[in-house]
Computed example of a mutant assay.
Amino acid sequence: MAFTTTATIKSFGGSLLKLTHESKVLKCQMALNLYIPPTESKKIPVLWHLSGLTCTADNATEKGFFQYWAAKYGIAIVFPDTSPRGSNHPGEHDSWDFGSAAGFYLNATAEPWSENYNMESYVIDELPKALYAAYPELDSTNEAIQGHSMGGHGALSLFFKYPGKFKTASGFAPIANPINCPWGQKAFGGYLKTKEEWASHDSTELFKAYKGPKVDLFITVGLSDDFLARELHIDNFIAAAKELGREDEVTVEKLEGYDHSFFYVSSVAEKHISHAAKHLGVL
């Protein structure tokens, strides 16, 4: 798969590459951003950042302040888009929390979404293979994943669904129990053919079923987040960890006064990047 570089932007000594390519699993052209830090390392660890509802690949790079910390720790960051673009299925562009920019990082099973809403396969398989072939300096064996809101759901759920792929995961105000919130119910009800499939994409349910080795997950959330009680259900995720006797494997920081916005995300970016850096071996 060939990438087209539409812009190269100098940022904190490294380079932010704006890329496009044709995706077979999504059946459309996709845009993404890749930050390569200033480093002499021949193999650069990789952090995947999954964005939230309404976002493109640009929001986090322009507002999240991630490049500064990635440059400091010598980590490359991949910023994929949040859904296929322009498929024009009925209703695809009608609401901000379903369809365009709201792919929920799963493979749809219900028609017509199953034709191309395959963000799970895109993020886990197609895009990594293409990037590591095109940029051999990226270390495919040393990856972590993080995400904001819907992207936090994606980061945590994919971490559990593909054990061993990522060294760690973290969430900025993640949708941690989507089967029990309006955003998740709308998405899963639309993308998935049966309700029995829902739990296999829910971070809290996946954690309950997890039998693997000890993990070290990190979550932050603002206590002034308007979505905290209704949509995020982070306490359900914490309760699942306690039921499993694995509460020491999840660190949750609840931050007074912070909301759900990029003002919050940029304020805690260093916490998440340093968490990833610890597991990627660059601290």
Results as ranks from 00 to 15, higher is better:
K254A: 14
K195H: 11
E243W: 05
A144P: 10
A229Y: 10
H233S: 02
H153E: 00
D216W: 15
V265N: 04
A241Q: 09
F218A: 03
E143Q: 15
A130H: 02
R230A: 15
N180I: 13
F207T: 13
W198E: 01
F166A: 09
L255H: 07
I145E: 02
R246M: 11
S274N: 13
I238P: 14
I145Q: 04
P178T: 07
T220P: 01
I238H: 07
A239Y: 00
N142L: 06
A187H: 03
A187S: 06
G152I: 03
W183Q: 14
L192C: 08
P178N: 02
L156I: 09
K242L: 10
F227K: 11
L228T: 08
G212W: 00
F159R: 00
L217Y: 02
F188E: 06
E137Y: 11
Y258Q: 13
H201D: 05
G164R: 01
G147A: 05
L206R: 09
G189Y: 07
M150Y: 01
A133W: 04
S266Y: 06
E143D: 05
L138N: 02
V268G: 09
A134I: 15
R230L: 13
K211D: 12
G257R: 01
V252W: 04
S203W: 12
E249F: 03
G184S: 00
K167D: 00
Y135M: 06
H153Y: 14
K214I: 08
P213W: 07
S170K: 08
P136N: 02
K165G: 03
V221C: 15
T168Y: 03
F262Y: 08
A144L: 07
I273A: 08
S261L: 09
G152N: 10
H272V: 05
R230K: 14
K195Q: 04
S274Q: 14
S274C: 13
A144K: 08
L158W: 00
P213S: 15
G152C: 05
A199V: 10
I273P: 10
L206N: 03
K186L: 14
V221I: 15
A277M: 11
V221Q: 11
A276D: 12
T251Y: 06
A130L: 06
V265D: 02
R230P: 15
S203Y: 06
H148K: 11
G222F: 00
K167V: 04
A209W: 12
G151N: 06
T141V: 05
H272E: 07
F159V: 02
K129M: 12
A155V: 03
Y191A: 01
E256T: 15
A155T: 04
D248A: 10
F172A: 09
A173L: 07
I234F: 03
Y264K: 05
H275R: 09
A134L: 08
G184M: 04
S140D: 07
A269P: 04
H233K: 09
G164Q: 03
V215Y: 10
A240W: 05
H233G: 05
E256A: 10
A199P: 08
V265K: 01
K242T: 09
K254E: 13
F159S: 00
D248P: 07
A199S: 15
K195R: 14
K161D: 02
I238S: 14
K271I: 10
I238C: 09
P174S: 05
P163K: 00
H148V: 12
G147T: 00
K242H: 05
L228C: 13
T141Y: 12
L244G: 09
L217H: 07
D216A: 11
L131E: 04
K165Y: 03
E256I: 11
G212Q: 03
W183D: 06
T204C: 10
F218T: 01
F227E: 11
